[in-house]
Simulated scan of single mutants.
Amino acid sequence: MESILTINNLTKKFGYLTAVKDLSFTINKGNVYGILGPNGSGKSTTLGIVLNVVNKTSGDFHWFDGTTTTHDALKKVGAIIERPNFYPYMSGYDNLKLVCKIKGVDYSKIDEKLEVVGLLDRKDSKFKTFSLGMKQRLAIASALLNDPEILILDEPTNGLDPQGIHQIREIIKQIAAKGTTILLASHLLDEVEKVCSHVVVLRKGVKLYAGRVDEMISSHGFFELKCNDQDKLKALLENHSSFGNIKIEEDLITAFLNEPMQSDDFNKFLFEKGIVLTHLVQRKESLEEQFLQLTDNQTNQNQ
């Protein structure tokens, strides 16, 4: 895999506060990466460091093959890490002409990128007449003008209404489908689950997980169970290697699987052991449940 960005043992301290702690991960070409974590988890700081707007305390990072300077590498990067800042009384098109001048890009790119973000029909409208979602889409168009190899977005749907959120997510998917690598920071599990192929989960600057989203969402899932003899069922599950965590809430038992298992095989096995189920539902674990388990484990280890 061709790597776009490699981060090694990156640490950033602001006085006594450690915003990012010993962080390492690699971004490979052609994927959509999410840095996921609550506010204050170090997402924006990490993006700031690799974009040369925040100085690291220790560790290192390199773009592409490691032989390119960060200054040159950033010419192949498109990034939006703050609210879009355009001239309010100029049209969307004229604002992008200014960006082209700064980036040394031909004006012919403007219409092409406005079409990508669905703003071609509003190119002559003044920026101040744009909705918040349109402003964000114009910012994405401006970040795409130099045909970057990677697009970096910090909380791209923050403050948008549901329609605006949907439009931005669809645009991100379309850009990714054409082969552009994307790195986005988000505190929204739903966003990462819908848009990203890979995720790095941060909490208080510490990496809890890095890998594929579909691997983080446990492929084995869990059973929700009710039966005529709860104690017997609980004992059986706790002594069965196929099951991990067992939760009991009133008369409902939730049994998390360590390995794949079919519900009909499981039901037959229990019946042979003399347990008759009155309720059996097999479910997939959502990213939210996985995320909560990760952060709970981290909290427990720190106590």
Results as ranks from 00 to 15, higher is better:
78 G>S: 09
78 G>Q: 07
79 A>D: 12
79 A>M: 08
79 A>C: 07
80 I>T: 14
80 I>W: 09
80 I>D: 13
80 I>H: 11
81 I>R: 12
81 I>V: 15
82 E>Q: 07
82 E>A: 03
83 R>C: 10
83 R>A: 15
84 P>K: 08
85 N>V: 03
85 N>K: 10
85 N>Q: 13
86 F>N: 06
87 Y>M: 04
87 Y>L: 07
87 Y>E: 10
88 P>M: 08
89 Y>T: 06
89 Y>I: 00
89 Y>F: 08
89 Y>C: 00
89 Y>E: 06
90 M>V: 01
90 M>N: 09
91 S>K: 02
92 G>C: 08
93 Y>V: 00
93 Y>N: 00
93 Y>M: 01
94 D>M: 03
94 D>V: 01
94 D>W: 01
94 D>N: 13
95 N>Y: 02
95 N>S: 10
95 N>H: 06
95 N>G: 07
95 N>K: 07
95 N>W: 00
96 L>C: 03
96 L>M: 07
97 K>D: 05
97 K>T: 12
97 K>Q: 12
97 K>M: 10
98 L>G: 10
98 L>Y: 14
99 V>K: 01
99 V>I: 14
99 V>R: 00
100 C>Y: 02
100 C>K: 02
100 C>T: 02
101 K>Q: 14
102 I>T: 14
103 K>F: 12
103 K>S: 09
103 K>E: 13
103 K>V: 09
103 K>N: 12
103 K>T: 09
104 G>T: 05
104 G>I: 01
105 V>P: 04
105 V>K: 01
105 V>E: 13
105 V>Q: 06
105 V>G: 04
106 D>Y: 02
106 D>H: 12
106 D>A: 09
107 Y>A: 04
107 Y>F: 12
107 Y>D: 14
107 Y>V: 04
107 Y>M: 03
108 S>R: 08
108 S>A: 13
109 K>M: 15
109 K>L: 12
109 K>R: 15
109 K>F: 08
109 K>D: 15
110 I>P: 00
110 I>M: 00
110 I>E: 00
110 I>W: 00
111 D>H: 07
111 D>L: 07
111 D>W: 00
112 E>M: 08
112 E>S: 10
113 K>V: 15
114 L>D: 14
115 E>C: 05
115 E>V: 04
115 E>K: 11
115 E>F: 02
115 E>Q: 13
116 V>Q: 10
116 V>I: 15
117 V>D: 02
117 V>C: 05
117 V>E: 02
117 V>G: 01
118 G>I: 06
118 G>D: 12
118 G>A: 09
118 G>H: 10
118 G>E: 09
118 G>S: 09
119 L>A: 12
119 L>Y: 04
119 L>G: 10
119 L>S: 11
